[in-house]
Deep mutational scan, measured.
Amino acid sequence: SSQSQGISSSSTSTMPNSSQSSHSSSGTLSSLETVSTQELYSIPEDQEPEDQEPEEPTPAPWARLWALQDGFANLECVNDNYWFGRDKSCEYCFDEPLLKRTDKYRTYSKKHFRIFREVGPKNSYIAYIEDHSGNGTFVNTELVGKGKRRPLNNNSEIALSLSRNKVFVFFDLTVDDQSVYPKALRDEYIMSKTLGSGACGEVKLAFERKTCKKVAIKIISKRKFAIGSAREADPALNVETEIEILKKLNHPCIIKIKNFFDAEDYYIVLELMEGGELFDKVVGNKRLKEATCKLYFYQMLLAVQYLHENGIIHRDLKPENVLLSSQEEDCLIKITDFGHSKILGETSLMRTLCGTPTYLAPEVLVSVGTAGYNRAVDCWSLGVILFICLSGYPPFSEHRTQVSLKDQITSGKYNFIPEVWAEVSEKALDLVKKLLVVDPKARFTTEEALRHPWLQDEDMKRKFQDLLSEENESTALPQVLAQPSTSRKRPREGEAEGAETTKRPAVCAAVL
């Protein structure tokens, strides 16, 4: 046999249950609850290399294929790409003598399909299967379609040439079993990697079954959420508030809700932002270029202005709740996480202390139980975000031990490091100062900020419009641009040419 590394010779191994799959997660993409704000000051410096380099560890398999027929071997997927077919160049070659004697062998292509993985959001991997055969590759009886790919989820059954000719079961060793999710959700989405997690739940990458488009699904544990919100009269209202707010909003710089499922837990389906959180971008770069800050901040102002015009105060604006559309420097941003939002009543007064301390406005800290506050709290938070983006460190921090965090904020005395700000323009610093004003009545509004000289930049605004146009074009394009080929190089076993392929839609398939 010419099988590559990772293939075992026996096809009769006992199949494990899916609970053996491991679970991976990374930083929070968007969480309903406010958790302790991640610290920006503690960015690790590059460490000196050791005298002796450690040995390379043996790579762990990321997936496993269990053979369902004699003549096929099990495969431990270690590499990122595997070709399957009769050709000797394939990493998994159909060359077992037992297999060659079967009637089905002649229906398999020289290069029938490939399984591979690509880097997705949060640097996690996504597994795909890609059909290159004349007679078809099927996943859970659905045709992939020649020249098309679809994501592979845990426990997928792979069939060759005929939908009933099941050859492998695919085990993704990095994700959960699909069966743990409600059927209504599974009918519409293929669940994938964990993108982030918080005290009350997690955010998962998923794929729409009909279109193969990526989405983010925010899962909120009702049990954990009820415990964490025990002081509230009705904890469920917080989730329902977020859903109702998101459904009503329609702005290019605000995250869109696509679906909602109320089962044992809450499942909020949101558009996916491939670039992750602004927080991670700031930490990764230490600070952002001023031109990049301007492009992002302009969009934040437009989003918050839209919220305020619609009578909504976000109340928890922070870099973790600003998501980026891509890994590119120039990209769209979207505001997310409306769990603490407040729809303005007639009095415009709110007395609930919520939000993240580092970003809270002075009037929030001094008015607990005594007075109210209004939309100006969001403008203060925007000032803190702009400060961080321009400088790479927070204006107020618990680690300045000589003054408490509350006193720093209520006095408006931010930590100004001259040598850092020497590289920032006077106009940018002036806008920061106009937003970090203790008196909410004297603080800049979103309208005033948008009129500030720093943002009178036609090149930046043109760039934003171009990015918007690109997004609109990409969302308007159909996901499947061509029909699967019906040509046949070899006959199917026991049926006429093209008899099955043309009847089945290529579900969740995307043209390369």
Rank of each mutant, 00 (worst) to 15 (best):
E244D: 13
E244F: 11
E244T: 14
I245N: 14
K247F: 14
I254T: 05
F261E: 02
F261K: 06
D262C: 14
A263E: 11
Y267P: 05
I268G: 04
I268Q: 10
V269R: 01
L270R: 01
F279Y: 07
K281I: 14
V283C: 04
G284W: 14
K286G: 10
R287P: 10
E290N: 13
T292W: 11
T292N: 08
K294H: 07
Y296T: 12
F297L: 10
A303S: 09
V304F: 08
L307F: 15
H308D: 09
I313H: 01
H314Y: 06
D316Q: 03
L317A: 05
L317E: 01
K318I: 01
E320I: 00
L323P: 00
L324Y: 00
E328A: 12
E328I: 00
E329H: 01
E329S: 09
L332A: 13
L332W: 05
I333Y: 01
K334P: 00
K334C: 11
I335L: 08
T336W: 04
D337R: 03
D337V: 05
I343N: 15
I343H: 15
I343W: 15
G345K: 11
E346A: 13
T347Y: 14
R351A: 06
L353E: 04
T358V: 11
Y359W: 03
L360C: 09
L360E: 07
P362C: 02
P362D: 00
E363V: 03
S367C: 12
G369L: 15
A376Y: 14
V377S: 01
L390V: 07
F396I: 13
E398Y: 02
H399L: 00
S404G: 04
S404T: 04
S404A: 15
L405Q: 01
K406M: 09
Q408L: 06
Q408R: 10
I409T: 01
G412D: 03
Y414L: 15
Y414A: 03
N415Q: 00
N415G: 07
N415V: 14
P418S: 14
W421Y: 06
W421F: 13
E423K: 13
V424G: 07
V424K: 09
A428G: 11
D430R: 04
L431P: 02
K433D: 01
F444M: 15
L450D: 03
H452P: 02
R462Y: 07
D466Y: 11
S469E: 11
N472C: 12
Q479T: 08
V480L: 05
Q483I: 04
P484T: 09
P484W: 01
S485P: 04
K489R: 12
E493A: 04
E495I: 14
E495H: 13
E495V: 09
A496Y: 07
T502D: 02
R504F: 08
A510D: 06
A510H: 04
L512C: 01
